[in-house]
Design a protein around this nucleic acid. Sequence first.
DNA 1: TATGAATGAGATTTCATTCAT
DNA 2: CATGAATGAAATCTCATTCAT
Lengths: 197, 197, 197, 197
Amino acid sequence: METRDSIIASAKNEFARFGFEGARVDRIARLAKVNKAMIYYHFGSKKRLYRAVIENQLSTKADFIEAILRQDLTIDEFVLQLASFYARVFSDNEFLPIFLRELASGGIQVKEIILKTISQKNLTAKLRNYFEAEMASGRIRRVNIEHAIISFIGMNVFYIAVASIANQIWEIENVEGFLSDRPRQVADIFLNGIKAK
Amino acid sequence: METRDSIIASAKNEFARFGFEGARVDRIARLAKVNKAMIYYHFGSKKRLYRAVIENQLSTKADFIEAILRQDLTIDEFVLQLASFYARVFSDNEFLPIFLRELASGGIQVKEIILKTISQKNLTAKLRNYFEAEMASGRIRRVNIEHAIISFIGMNVFYIAVASIANQIWEIENVEGFLSDRPRQVADIFLNGIKAK
Amino acid sequence: METRDSIIASAKNEFARFGFEGARVDRIARLAKVNKAMIYYHFGSKKRLYRAVIENQLSTKADFIEAILRQDLTIDEFVLQLASFYARVFSDNEFLPIFLRELASGGIQVKEIILKTISQKNLTAKLRNYFEAEMASGRIRRVNIEHAIISFIGMNVFYIAVASIANQIWEIENVEGFLSDRPRQVADIFLNGIKAK
Amino acid sequence: METRDSIIASAKNEFARFGFEGARVDRIARLAKVNKAMIYYHFGSKKRLYRAVIENQLSTKADFIEAILRQDLTIDEFVLQLASFYARVFSDNEFLPIFLRELASGGIQVKEIILKTISQKNLTAKLRNYFEAEMASGRIRRVNIEHAIISFIGMNVFYIAVASIANQIWEIENVEGFLSDRPRQVADIFLNGIKAK
DNA sequence: TATGAATGAGATTTCATTCAT
DNA sequence: CATGAATGAAATCTCATTCAT
């Protein structure tokens, strides 16, 4: 399993830097210190290697949200934890570019896998239920749940994706600080946005 | 100039669908109904053609925000117009994937151009001033402006980027309706999030 | 058309010597004094080049039989001419091995093309008619036409195919002489075999 | 010995279907349910495995003709038995393609082995003697023995080799019947062709 | 004997770019 | 400006063979 793992790691790096089309099997092999033919022995094709990388990526991420949902948190804690979760996931230097490029090309690979894992764990329903309960209790306003959640995720993910541009536009100098501040800042606006007055 | 434009249009389509590395000069030529050598005659290289496409894209977009800022709108109107603007810009089927891939690969091409146009029109300062005036007037809470604006843009752009996945996850059937609803929904949460109570 | 033809000629030689699987595109290019990529420019793939070679081969051959059938010959002359025809066709040093290997692998490529040309010229019916007229006239016995014709072709082609083995087994020293004698010898036995006594 | 035999059997199948160059050692191993390295352990190389297959093939065939020659048959019986023999030998679905391809490539492998077995049993002389005796007795015409015998074998073998094409050209529907008829039909024409009138 | 993994050379195919006309 | 053909470098993939266990 050592060779396989080393190939996956190198491939992840290569795909992250150059995208699927730009990635070179030669380079992956060299980086993994492995004979090029081994890649085909283990994965069959560049495409299948790519899929393996993506599966390997996503399989680890989905557990987190579930863990958060199981914790029975107040809405404030819940939203903050979710924000931190997204920050962490998308700050992965190799995952983000792969994900962005997947989006760019319709994301058929990623989509399938994401849908599978999400439906397996029934995450959609659990999230919906959580928010509905909060609305029923009157702690938050009646808002459209889908729009709200998508907005929330967008607030979190977007900055990470465009950080290099945004930092320059807004002359953000303490990038580290800005980034670590972000979950709290996002949670602040979002919670204010949905809470009953 | 007809040939040049036809090449640019075809190239935009090709780069949008396949990315820079995946794009094929042959295909661009065929789509543009132009001899392949003509592309080199007019643009010199694939890379330079790509840059031409990107410049052609961005040059048109920046004027809009300025126009909004000039209008002297209430915060509610302002935020809604901004949301609509982003929705329109990123709903361009060809611009979005190019933009996403640029982000994925560090986006040096796009970044430069964006920064230039934004600083030319001094958009950052104008936006900041607008929000500061609103805070000074007490109409909105004291929030971190950078975080707020970035969050706001993220709310808008994110859904468009992930629409195909999100629609399935959240079982959104009336996609058209959801999309046209979105600016209002985003504005609602965001305004509530920043307004003073 | 010069490049194309030169590729076809070299390819014919290569396929004859090594078979489809054993043939090397590199070698064909070198022999044709052509850049390897040109082969793909003109033919698309090794397989398609192979088909082009076969079509090129067969297209010239079918005309001959028709010509013989048009001549209104006596059965003796007719059979002799046919024998000579087959001798000539299969003595092509490059065609024979290609044909044999096609047979070996089910001959799907060749089969299609042969059937097309034969049915186009309606050769089957013409041959059948010729033999039936001869039987009706009483000049030849009532034999099964299909079996007879297939036998006749076999007598002719077989020797050419196995010449190198047969010559050694039967200690044939004057190979040239044996070969040029053959049509007459074959015709002799065949005619005796089918003629009325 | 079980492994060896299983490899030979699978290899025969593979070589028959794809030829030497087209055959894949991997596939042979898989078909034989044997580890690929075992093939090298037992046979040393693909080439040597191929030779083993061919020897295995030919060793069984030569005995038959001898048996026929020993039987002291009339010319009618003799020719019919020979025809049936050839029909049987070349109807081997795996032997025929291998043989055809050997012919196509000069057949050095097969040639050697055939010559050895034929000369060992002195078959040539025995056949020649048989026909000469028949001619001396006046039962058959004075014909060139080599040409006659080669023609006869050709009549038999040819149809089997080209059956798939011939059946379509001649619209033979009852293929089984045609094939089982063939020895008699061939013998009929051949005997008539050589017999004295 | 037997296995799964590894290797190196080479095969087919692709593609940005250029040339001759 | 325009074209069809050409080029060279490199990309993906294959495969006979060997190795370590």
